[in-house]
Design a protein around this nucleic acid. Structure first.
Lengths: 195, 195
DNA sequence: CGAAAATTTGACATGACTCAACTGGAGTGG
DNA sequence: CCACTCCAGTTGAGTCATGTCAAATTTTCG
């Protein structure tokens, strides 16, 4: 079974939280689909109602939205072993509020709501893995809001550089600007020390 | 047992998601503590390391932080039947990143990490309740970030008024300003139509 | 009733944005 | 492997949304 191969990463990740024997791991595997996305391509477009949660095997994705002026605003970046999704859309099966796009050529595995519900009723011990994953993500989202609030543009930039150097290398600057909530031009001025 | 009384709300809330018989409900009840907080008093101060998750029975609370200038910034408000916590601090048992304060005289029930862990191992079916609760909160946090990004001060104000009228009535305006990310003075000008 | 807290108002200051022009490097096709 | 294009990044001038500060006014509540 080839899919076992690319499922390994997720199984390993789950096993950091709960025990899974091989037959259970096989069940988990059977519920996921493998997808590749080329750089710049979208996995989800705003307004779509087919929702999946994506687990990133390789590459880098982002979730973003457009503001009233039509500019992109990045809510979150994700890399290897991160989950990414429109959680409200997923739960309510409502149109997506966001775009999900590949920043680099990427590989993901995905699961839709029905499949996740089935999987969880077949293997209830997985609830704990997802509970902890979401709890952690929720904590991260709180910090994200805190940082958006408390730092000036320049502080945000330096803070991000210091704390997430992997992303700085992998994400183009104009895109990082849409995450830190200022314009690419302004970012350029910060970098030049002319802000 | 008196505590059964104020635990009712949470039990009812949990039963919207999963089934609980009376003996299970009693187990849940036994893990929570009842607390009251007077308006303006803090349940948690920044830097503290005793962490609990709070379920609001009555009243209104908020979680906030201070920016570099010492001004308050409100991350989230919570009312009856909402959970409120510093989730990252809770999970990691690290010093709190935030203050949790009563906006009105309030009643909450609380649980610390050890108790929650015990409760969940004794009653694993609760994992699903918390998984769904956190998943929903995570979705809400995503929307929160989207709104902070995409709206001007004036749009934020009107949007909040329209969508959360209960809060507008219960929360002082200067505090709402710290949630919507502008100054009380500017809020006043928006209201006067002079923005 | 009085004090403290919340809200309003106005004058002025400023951080970040807009727009347009320019530079340099990375792909692409011939 | 060169030439061309296109996209990312830079720079500067002018502008605007929102902040700051201080004072006046209104509301709340002990």
């Amino acid at each position: 079974m080839y899919y076992i191969c690319f499922m390994d990463r997720l199984i390993t990740h789950i096993r950091k939280t709960i025990n899974l024997d091989d037959s259970e791991a096989a069940i988990v595997s059977s519920y996921f689909e493998y997808e590749t996305v080329k750089k710049k391509k979208h996995l989800v477009e705003e307004g779509q109602t087919v929702h999946k949660q994506y687990y990133i095997l390789k590459g880098c994705l982002r979730i973003y939205t457009l503001n009233t002026k039509g500019n992109e605003q990045t809510l979150q970046f994700g890399i290897e072993n991160w989950w990414i999704a429109d959680y409200l859309g997923f739960l309510g099966q409502t149109p997506s509020n966001y775009f999900i796009q590949a920043v680099e050529n990427s590989e993901v595995i995905s699961i839709d709501k029905n499949s996740l519900d089935e999987l969880l009723s077949q293997l209830p011990k997985l609830e704990k893995y997802f509970r902890l994953t979401f709890q952690k993500s929720l904590g991260a989202a709180q910090m994200r809001i805190k940082y958006l609030f408390t730092m000036t543009a320049e502080e945000s930039y330096h803070h991000f550089n210091k704390n997430f150097p992997e992303f700085v290398q992998r994400v183009p600057q104009y895109m990082l600007a849409t995450y830190l909530d200022f314009t690419p031009e302004f970012m350029s001025k910060i970098r030049a020390g002319k802000a």
